[in-house]
Computed example of a mutant assay.
Amino acid sequence: MEQIRIGKTLVDYHLVYSSRQKTIELVIDLDSGFTVKAPAGISKEDVAVNLQRKASWIITNLDKMNEVIRNETRKEFVSGEKFLYKGKHYRLKVIQVNEQIVSSLAFTHSKFIAHVPANLPEFDYPRIIQPLFIDFYHEKAEKILNQRARKYLVYFEAKPSLIKVQSLKNKWGNCSKTNQLRFNWRVVMAKMSVIDYVVVHELCHTKHKDHSRAFWNEVQKILPDYEGRKEWLRINGDLLKI
């Protein structure tokens, strides 16, 4: 994954080289995000120069794509809808089984599969399937956030007195005066680099309870590129919901 700074925004893109490509082609879509197709042999520096020339087009079309995604956030929980997990979109497949089945949700690393009773009307899917997704995200967030916290604890002498995943209004994480860390389960929908930023952010609050220069210096020591991750979350945070 490559990055380019356009104004104050860091833009991620996939750079694909092809001997059949004669010119640089820009592709933006919901499935693969932003892809740059370039002729074989062209340098990354020349690609970056070309992207800066087309900065306005890139930002405009990324905004359009994000607007489409925002419009999709009111889910109907029907087959074909896409749901975020660790920064990627996965389709949902709903399978009606029999009237006695207990509804369930599984993730197969390529899609989500929900099993529901055969007599469940489609308009009632959100009532049954949405809580299954919330349980899935909550369970995965518990595992992933604890794993990532353990990875970064080597940078800290004081250890958190608690690490807990829960629903947090308008916050991705919180560090109490007694170093209890709480994380919003929705962050597990973001890509791993952003999850790591949220974890490191709250761990740094075990040293600095405010957002002083000393705090941000601490974050930067661990994540030198934290500003790009922070910016991604600011721009895309409202997409991380169901």
Rank of each mutant, 00 (worst) to 15 (best):
V154T: 08
Y155I: 02
Y155A: 06
E157V: 13
A158G: 01
A158P: 00
K159Y: 13
P160S: 09
P160G: 09
P160I: 10
S161R: 13
S161G: 06
L162S: 11
K164A: 14
Q166G: 04
Q166A: 11
S167M: 04
S167L: 01
K169P: 00
K169A: 13
K171Q: 13
W172L: 06
W172K: 09
W172I: 07
G173Y: 10
G173V: 08
G173R: 08
G173Q: 10
N174D: 11
N174H: 13
C175Y: 13
C175L: 00
K177W: 07
K177D: 08
Q180F: 05
Q180K: 12
R182H: 15
F183N: 03
F183H: 01
F183E: 02
W185G: 00
W185Q: 04
R186K: 13
R186M: 08
R186T: 06
V187T: 14
V187F: 11
V188E: 01
M189T: 09
A190K: 05
K191W: 02
K191T: 02
M192N: 10
S193G: 00
S193L: 02
S193N: 06
V194R: 01
V194Q: 01
V194T: 14
V194W: 08
I195A: 04
V199E: 02
V200M: 08
V200A: 10
H201N: 05
L203Q: 12
C204W: 08
C204E: 07
C204A: 09
H205Q: 06
H205S: 06
T206C: 01
K207R: 13
K207W: 13
K207E: 15
H208K: 02
K209H: 15
K209S: 12
K209I: 11
K209M: 13
K209A: 10
D210Q: 08
H211G: 10
H211W: 12
S212N: 06
S212P: 01
R213V: 12
R213I: 11
A214I: 03
A214D: 12
F215H: 04
F215A: 02
N217V: 02
V219D: 03
V219W: 06
Q220N: 11
Q220I: 06
Q220K: 15
K221R: 14
K221M: 12
